[in-house]
Design a protein around this nucleic acid. Structure first.
Lengths: 244, 244
DNA sequence: GGTCTCCTGGCACTCAGTGCAGCCCGCGTG
DNA sequence: CACGCGGGCTGCACTGAGTGCCAGGAGACC
């Protein structure tokens, strides 16, 4: 007889069985109250196999972050000089959101776990730190030569991560209802507005704003509809000012 | 015979002896290669006493952070509405630098340890996270009511911590020579310049830009000097638009 | 069929962290 | 002075995470 007859869900390998078993136990009796032996017993595998798939008990709670980090690293490595750096790291941060949004129920459960287990919070911090390092390294490369290049890179990376996490956590706290993408977009737009260089703004012509130079050329007056998208205004402003 | 005759430096209590013994061993044979039993044997105390002074083996590497965090919390709690919030958190961050600068040799040794031991890096992250949370909570209180108050609070706190750490680590990497205070001041000034609202708004309003709603509230007028940095104008614009 | 190899399981071990019980020492009190 | 008492220190035993090692088994390849 084939081994698939014994376990119906044998197609996903041992790793997935371990994740499922671990979360069942973590949710019903808590993280610290669950031993690795409990998990492997429920998953029906040997204890040694657990540590073959996860270097620590905490890792089983973040089974997809390693892949996401690799994805982000590849994304940044594939960037060219035509990409505006700050926008690029914002887009990279959206990759993380996408991973969370792919499985809202799972993400919400994990969020509740990490919130109340200090050990998991600490572990999550180290995961987030690696994302932030990836962003910062990319920006350091792009900012090489600029004054305070590494300082700006580190600060912007931290700001992007903080904004992303602020929106993400707010979404997770509301049990994954609502548009996580829009919330993160809003948060990242705030950071992008703050740090993206005026010269880096893309030009899209629009009638949202009208502008004209002052009489003696040292003042510019912008009149804009209040509900106009801010970037439209900025683009118009930039066009009028016409300084690189 | 009294126990004080055996150890000349018995005046500082057991805690200091544990820290000294731990660092001696960590530096000469590494963190993971040193067991708690080794430490207590060298310090001449019982194993159980170690865990009465330090909840974990990692804690002995950061013996002063708990106090510094309390100091920062008190500093922020003692702040009044007359303090500009962003400047206040920058000043709070300087408290951490002061702690590091009080003992440069110790700080440099610890930095080298945490750089090469993943477990210590993770632990340091959780320490830094608590500082960042303290700053963010303070800013959230100050920004309550502002649009995107918590977002701004979190982002600014992260930026302050990142800037502080950037300068601090650069100083530690150079073995603690040079003026750490000046480096951190420079880094924090960058963040303060970016985020401080009142100072910025004042500067802009005084000669660079003025803004006000139109008669029926659907138009906004911005007046700006032609040579004003565009991002300053954008910040001002954003403030006005967000209040709607 | 035979062998080779990778994956798995089980065993034993180290070490971090904790609960418990005893011990010593200073201290107040009768 | 003797006695009791409370707090801090110690040793002991225990749980549980993480690791090294080796044996067994299933599939691949010859």
């Amino acid at each position: 007889m084939s081994s698939s007859s014994a376990v119906p869900a044998a197609k996903p390998p041992i790793r997935d069985a371990l994740v499922a078993a671990a979360f069942r136990l973590f949710l019903e009796r808590g993280f610290e109250q669950t031993t690795v032996d409990d998990i492997v017993a429920l998953a029906g595998v040997g204890r040694r196999s657990f540590f073959r798939y996860f270097p620590s008990k905490e890792d089983v709670v973040f089974p997809d972050h390693e892949g996401c980090l690799a994805e982000m690293t590849a994304f940044l490595a594939a960037s060219g000089p035509e990409h505006e750096p700050v926008r690029r790291v914002c887009d990279a941060a959206r990759l993380v959101l996408r991973m969370y949004a792919e499985n809202p129920a799972f993400s919400v459960q994990r969020y509740r776990l990490t919130r109340q287990v200090p050990g998991l919070r600490a572990y999550e911090l180290s995961v987030v730190w690696r994302y932030e390092r990836a962003l910062a390294e990319y920006l350091r490369g792009r900012f090489a030569g600029r004054p305070d290049g590494t300082l700006r890179a580190d600060v912007i990376a931290a700001a992007v991560v903080a904004a992303h996490n602020n929106a993400l956590r707010s979404w997770l706290r509301s049990d994954g209802v609502g548009d996580a993408g829009a919330a993160v977009d809003h948060a990242l737009a705030y950071v992008h507005r703050t740090y993206a260089r005026p010269a880096d703004a893309q030009a899209v012509r629009s009638g949202a704003a009208g502008a004209g130079p002052g009489p003696d050329g040292d003042v510019v007056v912008v009149v804009s509809r209040r509900d106009a998208p801010l970037w439209r205004v900025v683009q118009e402003l930039e066009t009028v000012l016409d300084r690189s």
